[in-house]
Nucleic acid binder design. Structure first.
Length: 481
DNA sequence: CGAATTAAAAGTACTTTTAATTCGGTGCAGTACT
């Protein structure tokens, strides 16, 4: 049986699909041909099938590096539901007994999900070195560039891990990455450009109309106006937890929509609950920070509104891409007010250490107390312990600052351009817009017909009012009578 | 009345260890009542 026949067979018998979606087959065949791959496919097109089927065809264990514990848990559960028993995660949510048991029975598993942090624990890496790894899959690989430089430094350690594991066949997967980001992914994983197969598909999402509204002290009204005119469910993104909470409670008071806010201060239990309710159409609007979104598998999100713009065009496209997965007409709205970029600039400043902090740390061989944010401390500690010369550290940080400034500049430019927004986005990702969709963007013009069409769709989504446990139990009793 | 100071300070996650607080059950002793 050829590889082509073999993977079609697995697709049908393991997953129940009769055909591959675009890019999947290409990625799997390249991997089976022994090529490391960088797979860039649009959100929700089944990237996980790529490493799963590749794994089924090869001897040995598949390691999947995942950025979030909740995401891991979802994936493990989903694979178990599909009938795969040899799958597990390895993380801090498990009890130490549970973890020990898994650690001593690693060869019984075919798929192991772990975080970059766990993968770099000495006892884990040592154990894995003695096993046969068939595939090392890096899910949401853009995190390497988005988080690795300052927020989660362990993401930059994946290259060393790969080397330690004797360079296993590698598959990096993401939905949105510019050419620069793709290069950063390759170099930090020590993948050679000319020996890596890149499977790249357009980041364009023709069913998402792109609009920007310039506000002047009327952002709240503009927001309310948009929400009233658009069909639900939708996400509203903020760059401040406080503002997200504030607007959420204002909307609860002002409207009859079901609204919740979501950010890192929400305890884990509530985060899961809110996600579930949103997915089950019990919540219409989520006021969120960037904490919300990764791994949210919801098909019918109709709009994404940005109350604050994100730090980069990459992040913007990532967040916008969460609506309209079902292919139905959806819309992204950016509410812009002059000066909004300074909020991002502030956040940026407190994520990187300044010169004074660097000099203090190098002179006293310790981190200045009190004045440093957590990410600044992390980065300083990293520089000190790795013995990086201070001048090299300084120029690295300066380079990173410049890069972030440039990204922010592009984002502002996007908001202000009167040229086609879609062309701008695609140009940023080195693509050319071939054909404008009929509802393209605010520069190309969206008429009332567009809003009418979107409003139409609302009738199709059924929102269930959430019931109290008493009502639910009463219902059960009535059913059994 | 004008100048100077002050307050607040914006987002993203994982891991492991340690200290402090809270919670629930049990046994015992003291008190009030029959």
């Amino acid at each position: 049986m050829t590889n082509e026949e073999k993977i079609k067979d697995i697709l049908l018998h393991q997953f129940g699909y009769t055909y591959f979606r675009e890019g999947q087959e290409e990625a799997i065949l390249a991997a089976l041909d022994g090529k490391d791959t960088l797979v860039m496919l649009p959100t929700g097109t089944g990237k996980s099938i790529c490493y799963q089927i590749t794994g089924y065809c090869l001897e040995g264990i598949v390691l999947i590096v995942s950025p979030l514990l909740s995401l891991m848990q979802d994936q493990v559960d989903q694979m178990k539901r599909m009938g795969e028993k040899r799958v597990t995660a390895l993380n801090s949510l498990m009890s130490s007994e549970e973890r020990k048991w898994v650690m001593s029975h690693l060869t019984d598993y075919k798929f192991i999900f772990l975080s970059p942090e766990m993968l770099q624990q000495k006892y884990v890496l040592a154990k894995l070195k003695s096993l046969t790894i068939s595939v090392m899959a890096i899910d949401e690989a853009h995190c390497i560039s988005q988080w690795g430089m300052d927020f989660r430094l362990e993401y930059l350690g994946l290259g060393m891990v790969r080397k330690e594991l004797n360079n296993p066949l590698t598959m990096a997967l993401t939905a949105t990455a510019t050419e620069v980001v793709r290069e950063e992914i390759l170099t930090s994983l020590f993948l050679e450009q000319d020996k890596t197969t890149q499977i790249l598909y357009s980041v364009d999402r023709p069913n998402i109309a792109l609009t920007t509204i310039n506000c002047s002290h009327d952002k709240d009204e503009q927001l309310l106006n948009q929400i009233k005119n658009l069909s639900k469910p939708g996400i509203i993104y903020f760059s401040s937890k406080k503002k997200a909470d504030q607007i959420a409670s204002w909307l609860k008071k002002e409207t009859s929509y079901t609204v919740e806010s979501y950010h890192s201060d929400i305890i884990n239990e509530d985060k899961i609950k809110i996600q579930q309710q949103f997915i089950q159409n019990e919540i219409e609007l989520i006021c969120a920070t960037s904490a919300f979104g990764m791994g949210i598998n919801k098909e019918n999100i109709r709009f994404v509104i940005h109350y604050h713009m994100p730090a980069s065009v990459e992040s913007y496209l990532q967040e916008v891409g969460r609506c309209g997965r079902d292919g139905q007409q959806s819309i992204a709205v950016l509410l812009f007010e002059a000066g909004d970029q300074f909020l991002q600039k502030r956040l940026q400043e407190q994520s990187l250490p300044n010169n004074a902090m660097l000099e203090y740390a190098y002179r006293h061989k310790k981190i200045p107390e009190g004045s440093c944010s957590e990410t600044q401390q992390q980065l300083l500690e990293n520089y000190l312990s790795s013995g990086t010369p201070i001048n090299q550290a300084k120029s690295q940080i300066l380079g990173r600052e410049r890069q972030k400034d440039r990204q922010l500049e592009y984002m502002v430019h996007y908001s202000q351009t009167t040229d086609c927004k879609r062309s701008f986005l695609l140009y940023y990702f080195n693509e050319k817009l071939i054909k404008n969709p009929s509802y393209c963007c605010s520069s190309c013009g969206l008429d009332q017909e567009f809003y009418d069409k979107i409003k139409e769709k609302e009738k199709l989504t059924h929102f269930s009012i959430s019931k109290s446990w008493k009502e639910k139990i009463e219902e059960l009793f009535l059913l059994s009578e």
